[in-house]
Design a protein around this nucleic acid. Sequence first.
DNA 1: GTCTATAGTGGGATAGAC
DNA 2: GTCTATCCCACTATAGAC
Lengths: 219, 219
Amino acid sequence: MNAESAEPARRRLTRAEAKARTRALLLDAAARVFARKGFTGASVEEIAEAAGFSIGALYSNFGSKEALFLELLADRQTDRIAEAAQMLECHPSGTGEAAAELGRLLIDVADKDTDFAPLQAEFWLYAVRNPEVLETMAANLRTPRRALQQVISTSLAQQDAPAEVSAEAVATVVAALFTGLVRQRRIDPASVPEELFGDALKWLFAGINASGAAPSGTE
Amino acid sequence: MNAESAEPARRRLTRAEAKARTRALLLDAAARVFARKGFTGASVEEIAEAAGFSIGALYSNFGSKEALFLELLADRQTDRIAEAAQMLECHPSGTGEAAAELGRLLIDVADKDTDFAPLQAEFWLYAVRNPEVLETMAANLRTPRRALQQVISTSLAQQDAPAEVSAEAVATVVAALFTGLVRQRRIDPASVPEELFGDALKWLFAGINASGAAPSGTE
DNA sequence: GTCTATAGTGGGATAGAC
DNA sequence: GTCTATCCCACTATAGAC
């Protein structure tokens, strides 16, 4: 806009690029620190230092600690549920291959990506305590779930599933099961073996096909 | 021990009784405040006020805010999973009555007892971040799960479930599903209708009976 | 001896000057 | 982006009330 005629020929980084880079570094650092210390427990000093900047730099990029957190909540919802959907897309939902893949995903999320589940829990607690972001949170969860729902929908159609069973309901169940198992594995890994998620899905889909609306006799 | 010869003949409350009552009131208040504000977000002043005491009273009963929280973590783990176990004990696991009961429980925990899930999430986060209490937490979760496992075990025996399916695994799945659905319902109630938990269990148990170790054909 | 009142210490969030 | 000042709050300690 203004007549800064000496056009900077990309010496190293454009100002906008530099600013975007700092923001990204701060967001990464914030994700780590929030996951490890919690929203209130995290100090902006620690976040700034982890990113390699000063507190003032953080406040020049984000209005407040809360604003920084909310930006993470809104944007960085790389829900791993979407990965489960992709896996189910490649493998038939009742087979050993699919079970193995899903087991690997569960272990990966629960054991390797140690910051994921705690950060997600922080998001959840914040949303529950601050109704104004409830809808944002719900929308973020809906997006990956829709991918899962899509896969399940075709999967149900291929099999002889009764028509009353909605793919949306099944997708919700699968997602809830996944997060629940990840959570439990962090507390007591022995109680959640690698193959449990795959087994549970095997049972679930078999049961959907077998039982229709009314369960066919008690025994 | 000491020669306080004038034995106090229970005017109103024994000192020990009074102290126990104060402690109990403080613990109740702490549970509420921790659920609503989180561990670090909660102030001891708010907890003391909520209980009707002063800060000093709190510190004369508990060494620190953390000690108060840890006492809750260790003792007040009235896991609602145990209630699900009792319900399944009365009703056959695949019937409409059981489903209705379980749906009611889900709604009760998710919608009515608004402090339960957040407090549980706080416990989980604290355990994940403080490995020294991980085992305490695991033990607390194991106790109600064992009750659930017991019920499921007899339920599986009554039905024609294959022997390879362990009641422990199924109990873990049921518990994970329950907490996952409660969590999801707090964010997006429409996505978790009342009957979903019961339906999911119906599918699950039907699938366990239908499929043995190897899924009997893909279609 | 059990609870209350209060003031002091230290650390962190935030805003404004450079 | 950095530095500095200010305010707020958790926690401690001490002294007094019942």
